[in-house]
Design a binder for these strands. Structure first.
Lengths: 236, 236
DNA sequence: GTAGAAAACCTGTCCGTACACCCTTATGAT
DNA sequence: ATCATAAGGGTGTACGGACAGGTTTTCTAC
Protein backbone atom coordinates (compact mmCIF):
# COMPACT_ATOMS: atom_id res chain seq x y z
CA UNK A 1 0.00 0.00 0.00
CA UNK A 2 1.37 3.37 -1.02
CA UNK A 3 2.17 6.19 1.33
CA UNK A 4 -0.68 8.38 0.13
CA UNK A 5 -3.12 5.55 0.81
CA UNK A 6 -1.95 5.36 4.40
CA UNK A 7 -2.45 9.08 4.78
CA UNK A 8 -5.91 8.67 3.25
CA UNK A 9 -6.76 5.82 5.63
CA UNK A 10 -5.69 7.83 8.63
CA UNK A 11 -7.57 10.96 7.61
CA UNK A 12 -10.74 9.13 6.59
CA UNK A 13 -10.88 7.18 9.84
CA UNK A 14 -10.37 10.40 11.76
CA UNK A 15 -13.28 11.89 9.89
CA UNK A 16 -15.40 8.82 10.57
CA UNK A 17 -14.63 8.84 14.28
CA UNK A 18 -15.29 12.53 14.66
CA UNK A 19 -11.74 13.77 15.20
CA UNK A 20 -12.45 16.04 12.26
CA UNK A 21 -16.18 16.78 12.49
CA UNK A 22 -18.35 17.87 9.60
CA UNK A 23 -17.77 21.52 8.86
CA UNK A 24 -14.26 21.63 10.29
CA UNK A 25 -11.06 22.17 8.35
CA UNK A 26 -8.45 19.48 7.85
CA UNK A 27 -4.83 20.46 8.50
CA UNK A 28 -3.39 22.40 5.58
CA UNK A 29 -1.36 20.62 2.94
CA UNK A 30 1.80 22.04 4.42
CA UNK A 31 0.91 20.74 7.88
CA UNK A 32 0.08 17.33 6.43
CA UNK A 33 3.51 17.11 4.83
CA UNK A 34 5.00 17.73 8.27
CA UNK A 35 2.63 15.51 10.27
CA UNK A 36 3.08 12.53 8.00
CA UNK A 37 6.57 13.28 6.70
CA UNK A 38 5.53 13.17 3.07
CA UNK A 39 5.85 15.48 0.12
CA UNK A 40 3.09 17.87 -0.76
CA UNK A 41 2.13 15.82 -3.80
CA UNK A 42 1.62 12.76 -1.63
CA UNK A 43 -0.56 14.73 0.77
CA UNK A 44 -2.53 16.11 -2.15
CA UNK A 45 -3.11 12.62 -3.52
CA UNK A 46 -4.62 11.57 -0.21
CA UNK A 47 -6.83 14.67 -0.25
CA UNK A 48 -7.88 13.87 -3.82
CA UNK A 49 -9.10 10.47 -2.66
CA UNK A 50 -11.05 12.06 0.16
CA UNK A 51 -12.52 14.52 -2.31
CA UNK A 52 -13.89 12.09 -4.82
CA UNK A 53 -15.28 9.81 -2.15
CA UNK A 54 -17.28 12.68 -0.75
CA UNK A 55 -15.39 13.22 2.49
CA UNK A 56 -14.19 16.74 1.90
CA UNK A 57 -14.60 19.77 -0.29
CA UNK A 58 -11.50 21.79 -1.01
CA UNK A 59 -11.87 25.54 -1.05
CA UNK A 60 -9.22 27.62 -2.78
CA UNK A 61 -7.33 29.80 -0.38
CA UNK A 62 -9.06 28.33 2.66
CA UNK A 63 -8.53 24.61 3.06
CA UNK A 64 -10.31 21.27 3.08
CA UNK A 65 -13.75 21.29 4.68
CA UNK A 66 -15.23 18.03 5.97
CA UNK A 67 -18.67 17.51 4.44
CA UNK A 68 -21.39 15.12 5.52
CA UNK A 69 -21.00 11.88 3.72
CA UNK A 70 -23.52 9.09 3.56
CA UNK A 71 -22.34 5.67 4.51
CA UNK A 72 -25.45 3.56 4.36
CA UNK A 73 -26.13 3.28 0.64
CA UNK A 74 -27.10 -0.04 -0.84
CA UNK A 75 -24.23 -2.00 -2.36
CA UNK A 76 -25.21 -0.78 -5.80
CA UNK A 77 -23.05 2.25 -5.47
CA UNK A 78 -19.28 2.39 -5.24
CA UNK A 79 -18.95 -1.26 -6.09
CA UNK A 80 -18.90 -3.17 -2.85
CA UNK A 81 -19.99 -6.72 -2.30
CA UNK A 82 -23.05 -7.64 -0.31
CA UNK A 83 -20.92 -9.02 2.48
CA UNK A 84 -18.84 -5.87 2.75
CA UNK A 85 -22.02 -3.81 2.77
CA UNK A 86 -23.68 -5.93 5.44
CA UNK A 87 -20.60 -5.65 7.60
CA UNK A 88 -20.47 -1.88 7.15
CA UNK A 89 -24.06 -1.23 8.19
CA UNK A 90 -24.03 -3.90 10.87
CA UNK A 91 -27.61 -4.86 10.08
CA UNK A 92 -28.80 -8.36 10.69
CA UNK A 93 -28.33 -9.97 7.31
CA UNK A 94 -28.08 -13.40 5.86
CA UNK A 95 -28.40 -14.94 2.45
CA UNK A 96 -29.71 -18.19 1.11
CA UNK A 97 -28.47 -20.07 -1.93
CA UNK A 98 -31.43 -20.63 -4.26
CA UNK A 99 -29.78 -21.96 -7.36
CA UNK A 100 -26.30 -22.94 -8.46
CA UNK A 101 -25.95 -24.20 -12.01
CA UNK A 102 -24.41 -23.67 -15.42
CA UNK A 103 -26.03 -21.88 -18.30
CA UNK A 104 -25.44 -19.58 -21.25
CA UNK A 105 -25.29 -15.86 -20.57
CA UNK A 106 -28.73 -14.32 -21.21
CA UNK A 107 -27.60 -11.67 -23.66
CA UNK A 108 -30.84 -9.71 -23.72
CA UNK A 109 -30.56 -8.67 -20.09
CA UNK A 110 -27.15 -7.13 -20.49
CA UNK A 111 -26.84 -5.89 -24.03
CA UNK A 112 -27.85 -2.35 -23.09
CA UNK A 113 -24.85 -2.21 -20.78
CA UNK A 114 -22.25 -3.97 -22.90
CA UNK A 115 -22.25 -4.07 -26.66
CA UNK A 116 -20.73 -6.89 -28.67
CA UNK A 117 -21.55 -9.55 -26.13
CA UNK A 118 -21.00 -13.10 -27.20
CA UNK A 119 -23.04 -15.96 -25.94
CA UNK A 120 -20.74 -17.59 -23.42
CA UNK A 121 -20.83 -20.33 -20.87
CA UNK A 122 -21.35 -19.15 -17.34
CA UNK A 123 -21.89 -20.36 -13.85
CA UNK A 124 -25.13 -18.93 -12.52
CA UNK A 125 -25.61 -18.27 -8.81
CA UNK A 126 -28.93 -17.14 -7.42
CA UNK A 127 -29.16 -15.96 -3.84
CA UNK A 128 -31.91 -14.55 -1.70
CA UNK A 129 -30.75 -11.79 0.63
CA UNK A 130 -32.43 -11.10 3.94
CA UNK A 131 -32.40 -7.86 5.89
CA UNK A 132 -33.69 -8.15 9.44
CA UNK A 133 -35.01 -11.60 8.57
CA UNK A 134 -37.13 -10.25 5.75
CA UNK A 135 -36.40 -11.40 2.19
CA UNK A 136 -35.39 -8.20 0.39
CA UNK A 137 -33.18 -8.93 -2.62
CA UNK A 138 -32.80 -11.64 -5.22
CA UNK A 139 -29.30 -11.61 -6.70
CA UNK A 140 -28.53 -13.59 -9.81
CA UNK A 141 -24.88 -13.62 -10.85
CA UNK A 142 -23.51 -15.00 -14.09
CA UNK A 143 -19.77 -15.65 -14.02
CA UNK A 144 -17.83 -16.44 -17.19
CA UNK A 145 -16.41 -19.93 -17.07
CA UNK A 146 -13.52 -18.80 -19.25
CA UNK A 147 -12.39 -16.60 -16.36
CA UNK A 148 -13.63 -18.62 -13.38
CA UNK A 149 -13.79 -22.29 -14.34
CA UNK A 150 -15.47 -23.41 -11.14
CA UNK A 151 -16.84 -22.05 -7.90
CA UNK A 152 -16.84 -23.96 -4.63
CA UNK A 153 -20.25 -24.23 -3.05
CA UNK A 154 -18.88 -22.54 0.03
CA UNK A 155 -17.85 -19.42 -1.91
CA UNK A 156 -21.33 -19.20 -3.46
CA UNK A 157 -22.82 -19.32 0.00
CA UNK A 158 -20.57 -16.70 1.54
CA UNK A 159 -18.95 -14.14 -0.73
CA UNK A 160 -18.17 -14.38 -4.42
CA UNK A 161 -16.13 -11.17 -4.35
CA UNK A 162 -13.91 -12.55 -1.64
CA UNK A 163 -13.39 -15.74 -3.62
CA UNK A 164 -12.56 -13.84 -6.81
CA UNK A 165 -10.18 -11.40 -5.19
CA UNK A 166 -8.52 -13.33 -2.40
CA UNK A 167 -8.53 -16.91 -3.61
CA UNK A 168 -8.26 -16.44 -7.35
CA UNK A 169 -6.34 -13.18 -7.21
CA UNK A 170 -8.58 -11.43 -9.72
CA UNK A 171 -8.34 -7.64 -9.80
CA UNK A 172 -11.81 -6.19 -10.02
CA UNK A 173 -11.60 -2.73 -11.53
CA UNK A 174 -14.92 -1.20 -12.50
CA UNK A 175 -18.54 -1.81 -13.17
CA UNK A 176 -21.33 -0.14 -15.06
CA UNK A 177 -24.83 -0.55 -13.85
CA UNK A 178 -28.37 0.33 -14.58
CA UNK A 179 -31.44 0.68 -12.42
CA UNK A 180 -34.97 0.14 -13.63
CA UNK A 181 -38.35 -0.44 -12.06
CA UNK A 182 -40.42 -3.44 -13.16
CA UNK A 183 -43.58 -5.21 -12.08
CA UNK A 184 -42.76 -8.12 -9.81
CA UNK A 185 -42.60 -11.49 -11.54
CA UNK A 186 -44.14 -14.64 -10.20
CA UNK A 187 -40.77 -15.75 -8.80
CA UNK A 188 -40.22 -12.38 -7.13
CA UNK A 189 -43.58 -12.52 -5.46
CA UNK A 190 -42.98 -16.01 -4.23
CA UNK A 191 -39.50 -15.50 -2.83
CA UNK A 192 -39.99 -12.03 -1.40
CA UNK A 193 -43.62 -12.40 -0.31
CA UNK A 194 -45.05 -9.72 -2.55
CA UNK A 195 -48.67 -9.17 -3.45
CA UNK A 196 -49.91 -9.02 -7.01
CA UNK A 197 -49.33 -5.65 -8.68
CA UNK A 198 -46.28 -4.82 -6.65
CA UNK A 199 -43.05 -3.59 -8.15
CA UNK A 200 -39.37 -4.40 -7.84
CA UNK A 201 -36.29 -2.26 -8.47
CA UNK A 202 -33.93 -4.11 -10.78
CA UNK A 203 -30.26 -3.28 -10.95
CA UNK A 204 -28.26 -4.80 -13.76
CA UNK A 205 -24.51 -4.58 -13.74
CA UNK A 206 -21.50 -5.68 -15.73
CA UNK A 207 -18.27 -5.92 -13.76
CA UNK A 208 -14.83 -5.94 -15.36
CA UNK A 209 -11.30 -6.78 -14.36
CA UNK A 210 -8.27 -4.56 -14.63
CA UNK A 211 -7.48 -6.04 -18.02
CA UNK A 212 -10.96 -4.84 -19.10
CA UNK A 213 -12.45 -8.35 -19.31
CA UNK A 214 -16.13 -8.22 -18.46
CA UNK A 215 -16.57 -11.37 -16.40
CA UNK A 216 -19.41 -10.87 -13.93
CA UNK A 217 -22.98 -10.10 -14.89
CA UNK A 218 -25.45 -9.47 -12.12
CA UNK A 219 -29.16 -8.91 -11.95
CA UNK A 220 -30.38 -7.78 -8.59
CA UNK A 221 -34.10 -7.59 -7.87
CA UNK A 222 -35.07 -5.52 -4.84
CA UNK A 223 -38.35 -5.22 -2.99
CA UNK A 224 -39.39 -1.71 -3.96
CA UNK A 225 -40.29 -0.74 -0.41
CA UNK A 226 -36.83 -1.66 0.90
CA UNK A 227 -34.85 -0.23 -1.95
CA UNK A 228 -32.72 2.85 -1.39
CA UNK A 229 -29.85 3.81 -3.61
CA UNK A 230 -27.48 6.55 -2.59
CA UNK A 231 -24.96 8.35 -4.67
CA UNK A 232 -22.50 11.18 -4.52
CA UNK A 233 -21.53 13.08 -7.63
CA UNK A 234 -19.30 15.99 -8.47
CA UNK A 235 -19.83 18.53 -11.19
CA UNK A 236 -16.26 19.09 -12.58
CA UNK B 1 -9.00 26.33 -18.30
CA UNK B 2 -5.89 24.44 -17.28
CA UNK B 3 -3.59 22.67 -19.66
CA UNK B 4 -4.55 19.21 -18.44
CA UNK B 5 -8.21 20.00 -19.05
CA UNK B 6 -7.45 20.85 -22.65
CA UNK B 7 -5.63 17.55 -23.07
CA UNK B 8 -8.62 15.81 -21.49
CA UNK B 9 -11.03 17.58 -23.83
CA UNK B 10 -9.03 16.60 -26.85
CA UNK B 11 -8.64 12.97 -25.83
CA UNK B 12 -12.26 12.52 -24.76
CA UNK B 13 -13.59 14.02 -27.98
CA UNK B 14 -11.31 11.75 -29.96
CA UNK B 15 -12.69 8.79 -28.05
CA UNK B 16 -16.23 9.97 -28.68
CA UNK B 17 -15.68 10.42 -32.40
CA UNK B 18 -13.98 7.07 -32.81
CA UNK B 19 -10.42 8.21 -33.41
CA UNK B 20 -9.56 5.97 -30.47
CA UNK B 21 -12.11 3.14 -30.66
CA UNK B 22 -13.15 0.95 -27.75
CA UNK B 23 -10.45 -1.59 -27.05
CA UNK B 24 -7.60 0.44 -28.53
CA UNK B 25 -4.69 1.92 -26.64
CA UNK B 26 -4.23 5.63 -26.14
CA UNK B 27 -0.75 7.03 -26.83
CA UNK B 28 1.61 6.35 -23.95
CA UNK B 29 2.20 8.99 -21.32
CA UNK B 30 5.57 9.76 -22.85
CA UNK B 31 4.03 10.24 -26.28
CA UNK B 32 1.33 12.48 -24.82
CA UNK B 33 3.97 14.73 -23.26
CA UNK B 34 5.47 15.11 -26.72
CA UNK B 35 2.21 15.44 -28.68
CA UNK B 36 0.81 18.12 -26.40
CA UNK B 37 4.10 19.62 -25.16
CA UNK B 38 3.23 19.08 -21.52
CA UNK B 39 4.93 17.43 -18.58
CA UNK B 40 4.15 13.86 -17.66
CA UNK B 41 2.21 14.96 -14.60
CA UNK B 42 -0.06 17.10 -16.74
CA UNK B 43 -0.68 14.20 -19.12
CA UNK B 44 -1.38 11.92 -16.18
CA UNK B 45 -3.91 14.38 -14.79
CA UNK B 46 -5.79 14.28 -18.07
CA UNK B 47 -5.70 10.48 -18.02
CA UNK B 48 -6.96 10.49 -14.43
CA UNK B 49 -9.99 12.48 -15.54
CA UNK B 50 -10.66 10.02 -18.36
CA UNK B 51 -10.31 7.18 -15.89
CA UNK B 52 -12.81 8.30 -13.34
CA UNK B 53 -15.33 9.29 -15.96
CA UNK B 54 -15.23 5.79 -17.36
CA UNK B 55 -13.47 6.50 -20.65
CA UNK B 56 -10.39 4.40 -20.11
CA UNK B 57 -8.87 1.71 -17.95
CA UNK B 58 -5.18 1.98 -17.25
CA UNK B 59 -3.24 -1.27 -17.27
CA UNK B 60 0.09 -1.34 -15.53
CA UNK B 61 2.92 -2.02 -17.95
CA UNK B 62 0.67 -1.80 -21.00
CA UNK B 63 -1.13 1.49 -21.37
CA UNK B 64 -4.56 3.10 -21.36
CA UNK B 65 -7.33 1.02 -22.92
CA UNK B 66 -10.49 2.72 -24.16
CA UNK B 67 -13.54 1.07 -22.59
CA UNK B 68 -17.16 1.33 -23.60
CA UNK B 69 -18.75 4.13 -21.75
CA UNK B 70 -22.45 4.86 -21.54
CA UNK B 71 -23.55 8.34 -22.30
CA UNK B 72 -27.29 8.11 -22.15
CA UNK B 73 -27.94 7.95 -18.43
CA UNK B 74 -30.72 9.99 -16.93
CA UNK B 75 -29.60 13.30 -15.45
CA UNK B 76 -29.53 11.74 -12.01
CA UNK B 77 -25.99 10.63 -12.43
CA UNK B 78 -22.86 12.73 -12.77
CA UNK B 79 -24.73 15.90 -11.90
CA UNK B 80 -25.91 17.33 -15.17
CA UNK B 81 -28.92 19.51 -15.71
CA UNK B 82 -31.98 18.37 -17.61
CA UNK B 83 -31.17 20.73 -20.43
CA UNK B 84 -27.62 19.45 -20.77
CA UNK B 85 -28.93 15.91 -20.72
CA UNK B 86 -31.60 16.57 -23.32
CA UNK B 87 -29.02 18.15 -25.56
CA UNK B 88 -26.65 15.22 -25.14
CA UNK B 89 -29.18 12.54 -26.07
CA UNK B 90 -30.83 14.69 -28.72
CA UNK B 91 -34.25 13.28 -27.86
CA UNK B 92 -37.34 15.29 -28.40
CA UNK B 93 -37.84 16.93 -25.03
CA UNK B 94 -39.67 19.85 -23.57
CA UNK B 95 -40.74 20.95 -20.16
CA UNK B 96 -43.70 22.80 -18.78
CA UNK B 97 -43.75 25.11 -15.78
CA UNK B 98 -46.39 23.82 -13.37
CA UNK B 99 -45.80 25.92 -10.31
CA UNK B 100 -43.56 28.82 -9.33
CA UNK B 101 -43.96 30.07 -5.79
CA UNK B 102 -42.33 30.64 -2.41
CA UNK B 103 -42.46 28.27 0.50
CA UNK B 104 -40.55 26.83 3.43
CA UNK B 105 -38.20 23.93 2.74
CA UNK B 106 -40.01 20.64 3.47
CA UNK B 107 -37.45 19.22 5.87
CA UNK B 108 -38.86 15.71 6.01
CA UNK B 109 -38.09 14.99 2.37
CA UNK B 110 -34.42 15.83 2.68
CA UNK B 111 -33.36 15.08 6.22
CA UNK B 112 -32.07 11.63 5.29
CA UNK B 113 -29.65 13.29 2.89
CA UNK B 114 -28.58 16.29 4.94
CA UNK B 115 -28.55 16.43 8.70
CA UNK B 116 -29.00 19.62 10.69
CA UNK B 117 -31.31 21.21 8.17
CA UNK B 118 -32.99 24.41 9.23
CA UNK B 119 -36.37 25.44 8.01
CA UNK B 120 -35.56 28.08 5.46
CA UNK B 121 -37.34 30.19 2.91
CA UNK B 122 -37.12 28.90 -0.60
CA UNK B 123 -38.36 29.49 -4.09
CA UNK B 124 -40.12 26.37 -5.32
CA UNK B 125 -40.21 25.50 -9.00
CA UNK B 126 -42.21 22.57 -10.29
CA UNK B 127 -41.78 21.42 -13.85
CA UNK B 128 -43.20 18.60 -15.89
CA UNK B 129 -40.67 17.05 -18.28
CA UNK B 130 -41.70 15.42 -21.53
CA UNK B 131 -39.81 12.81 -23.49
CA UNK B 132 -41.11 12.20 -26.98
CA UNK B 133 -44.20 14.17 -26.08
CA UNK B 134 -45.01 11.89 -23.17
CA UNK B 135 -45.01 13.30 -19.64
CA UNK B 136 -42.23 11.39 -17.89
CA UNK B 137 -40.82 13.36 -14.95
CA UNK B 138 -42.07 15.81 -12.35
CA UNK B 139 -39.21 17.91 -11.01
CA UNK B 140 -39.70 20.01 -7.93
CA UNK B 141 -36.76 22.25 -7.01
CA UNK B 142 -36.44 24.23 -3.79
CA UNK B 143 -33.84 27.00 -3.99
CA UNK B 144 -32.69 28.84 -0.86
CA UNK B 145 -33.66 32.50 -1.01
CA UNK B 146 -30.61 33.34 1.08
CA UNK B 147 -28.46 32.22 -1.85
CA UNK B 148 -30.73 33.04 -4.79
CA UNK B 149 -33.05 35.88 -3.82
CA UNK B 150 -35.14 35.75 -6.97
CA UNK B 151 -35.50 33.79 -10.17
CA UNK B 152 -36.72 35.25 -13.43
CA UNK B 153 -39.65 33.37 -14.93
CA UNK B 154 -37.61 32.80 -18.06
CA UNK B 155 -34.86 30.96 -16.13
CA UNK B 156 -37.48 28.74 -14.50
CA UNK B 157 -38.83 27.87 -17.92
CA UNK B 158 -35.48 27.11 -19.52
CA UNK B 159 -32.58 26.08 -17.30
CA UNK B 160 -32.02 26.79 -13.63
CA UNK B 161 -28.45 25.45 -13.76
CA UNK B 162 -27.58 27.84 -16.54
CA UNK B 163 -29.03 30.74 -14.57
CA UNK B 164 -27.15 29.77 -11.40
CA UNK B 165 -23.82 29.23 -13.09
CA UNK B 166 -23.72 31.74 -15.93
CA UNK B 167 -25.86 34.61 -14.72
CA UNK B 168 -25.27 34.44 -10.98
CA UNK B 169 -21.77 32.99 -11.16
CA UNK B 170 -22.46 30.30 -8.59
CA UNK B 171 -19.99 27.42 -8.51
CA UNK B 172 -21.87 24.17 -8.20
CA UNK B 173 -19.59 21.56 -6.67
CA UNK B 174 -21.31 18.36 -5.62
CA UNK B 175 -24.56 16.66 -4.87
CA UNK B 176 -25.73 13.68 -2.93
CA UNK B 177 -28.81 11.86 -4.02
CA UNK B 178 -31.07 9.03 -3.21
CA UNK B 179 -33.38 6.87 -5.27
CA UNK B 180 -36.49 5.20 -3.93
CA UNK B 181 -39.59 3.62 -5.38
CA UNK B 182 -42.99 4.79 -4.20
CA UNK B 183 -46.63 4.30 -5.15
CA UNK B 184 -47.79 7.08 -7.44
CA UNK B 185 -49.62 9.90 -5.70
CA UNK B 186 -52.78 11.47 -6.98
CA UNK B 187 -50.81 14.36 -8.48
CA UNK B 188 -48.38 11.97 -10.18
CA UNK B 189 -51.22 10.04 -11.74
CA UNK B 190 -52.87 13.19 -12.99
CA UNK B 191 -49.81 14.82 -14.51
CA UNK B 192 -48.18 11.71 -15.93
CA UNK B 193 -51.33 9.82 -16.89
CA UNK B 194 -50.80 6.87 -14.59
CA UNK B 195 -53.31 4.27 -13.57
CA UNK B 196 -54.12 3.48 -9.98
CA UNK B 197 -51.61 1.15 -8.34
CA UNK B 198 -48.71 2.27 -10.49
CA UNK B 199 -45.36 3.25 -9.08
CA UNK B 200 -42.91 6.11 -9.53
CA UNK B 201 -39.15 6.26 -9.03
CA UNK B 202 -38.30 9.19 -6.79
CA UNK B 203 -34.86 10.73 -6.75
CA UNK B 204 -34.10 13.21 -4.01
CA UNK B 205 -30.96 15.29 -4.15
CA UNK B 206 -29.18 18.01 -2.25
CA UNK B 207 -26.79 20.12 -4.29
CA UNK B 208 -24.03 22.24 -2.79
CA UNK B 209 -21.74 25.03 -3.86
CA UNK B 210 -17.97 25.10 -3.67
CA UNK B 211 -18.17 26.79 -0.29
CA UNK B 212 -20.21 23.74 0.86
CA UNK B 213 -23.49 25.66 1.11
CA UNK B 214 -26.38 23.32 0.34
CA UNK B 215 -28.64 25.56 -1.71
CA UNK B 216 -30.67 23.39 -4.09
CA UNK B 217 -33.05 20.64 -3.03
CA UNK B 218 -34.71 18.60 -5.72
CA UNK B 219 -37.34 15.92 -5.76
CA UNK B 220 -37.72 14.23 -9.10
CA UNK B 221 -40.61 11.83 -9.69
CA UNK B 222 -40.23 9.54 -12.69
CA UNK B 223 -42.74 7.29 -14.44
CA UNK B 224 -41.44 3.89 -13.45
CA UNK B 225 -41.68 2.52 -16.97
CA UNK B 226 -39.52 5.32 -18.38
CA UNK B 227 -37.00 5.41 -15.60
CA UNK B 228 -33.47 4.24 -16.26
CA UNK B 229 -30.54 5.23 -14.14
CA UNK B 230 -27.02 4.47 -15.25
CA UNK B 231 -23.89 4.57 -13.25
CA UNK B 232 -20.23 3.81 -13.49
CA UNK B 233 -18.25 2.87 -10.41
CA UNK B 234 -14.69 1.90 -9.65
CA UNK B 235 -13.47 -0.43 -6.96
CA UNK B 236 -11.24 1.84 -4.89
C1' DG C 1 -11.33 54.32 14.33
C1' DT C 2 -11.31 53.09 9.63
C1' DA C 3 -10.10 52.01 5.07
C1' DG C 4 -6.70 50.27 2.24
C1' DA C 5 -2.49 48.06 1.35
C1' DA C 6 0.72 44.57 2.50
C1' DA C 7 1.95 40.15 4.38
C1' DA C 8 1.03 35.50 5.46
C1' DC C 9 -1.21 31.44 4.36
C1' DC C 10 -3.86 28.57 1.57
C1' DT C 11 -4.89 25.69 -2.70
C1' DG C 12 -4.17 25.01 -8.04
C1' DT C 13 -1.13 24.12 -11.70
C1' DC C 14 3.06 22.91 -13.96
C1' DC C 15 7.51 21.35 -14.41
C1' DG C 16 11.64 18.01 -13.81
C1' DT C 17 13.72 13.84 -11.80
C1' DA C 18 14.20 9.33 -9.89
C1' DC C 19 13.15 4.70 -9.05
C1' DA C 20 10.07 0.50 -8.55
C1' DC C 21 7.28 -2.72 -10.78
C1' DC C 22 4.85 -4.77 -14.80
C1' DC C 23 4.51 -6.43 -19.55
C1' DT C 24 6.27 -7.54 -24.11
C1' DT C 25 9.84 -8.56 -27.09
C1' DA C 26 14.27 -9.61 -28.46
C1' DT C 27 18.35 -12.08 -27.39
C1' DG C 28 21.11 -15.83 -26.55
C1' DA C 29 22.51 -20.16 -24.43
C1' DT C 30 21.33 -24.81 -24.37
C1' DA D 1 13.59 -25.50 -31.46
C1' DT D 2 13.14 -24.19 -26.59
C1' DC D 3 13.40 -21.77 -22.66
C1' DA D 4 15.40 -18.54 -19.48
C1' DT D 5 17.20 -13.92 -19.34
C1' DA D 6 17.84 -9.23 -20.45
C1' DA D 7 16.30 -4.99 -22.49
C1' DG D 8 12.99 -1.61 -23.58
C1' DG D 9 8.84 0.66 -22.92
C1' DG D 10 4.85 1.18 -20.11
C1' DT D 11 2.53 2.87 -15.66
C1' DG D 12 2.77 3.86 -10.28
C1' DT D 13 4.75 6.40 -6.65
C1' DA D 14 7.41 9.88 -4.48
C1' DC D 15 10.19 13.80 -4.16
C1' DG D 16 11.64 18.60 -5.21
C1' DG D 17 10.80 23.45 -6.79
C1' DA D 18 8.30 27.38 -8.80
C1' DC D 19 4.63 30.47 -9.61
C1' DA D 20 -0.42 31.88 -9.95
C1' DG D 21 -4.44 33.17 -7.61
C1' DG D 22 -7.70 33.14 -3.69
C1' DT D 23 -8.55 34.29 1.46
C1' DT D 24 -7.49 35.99 5.87
C1' DT D 25 -4.89 38.64 8.99
C1' DT D 26 -1.92 42.29 10.07
C1' DC D 27 -0.29 46.59 9.74
C1' DT D 28 -0.01 51.14 8.11
C1' DA D 29 -1.62 55.63 6.70
C1' DC D 30 -5.05 58.73 7.22
Amino acid sequence: MGKYERVYQDLSSKIDDGTYPVGSLLPSEKQLTENYSVSRETARKALALLTDRGYIQKIMGKGSVVISHSQYALPVSSLVSYKEFAHAVGASTRSELIDFSETLLPLASFKSLAKDLQSEETIAVTRLRFFDNEPAIIDRDYILKSVVPSIPQEAAETSLFEYFENTLGLSIAYSSKQIKVEPAQESDRKLMHLAKGEYVAVTTSVTSLEDTTAFLFTESRHRADKFIYQDFARRR
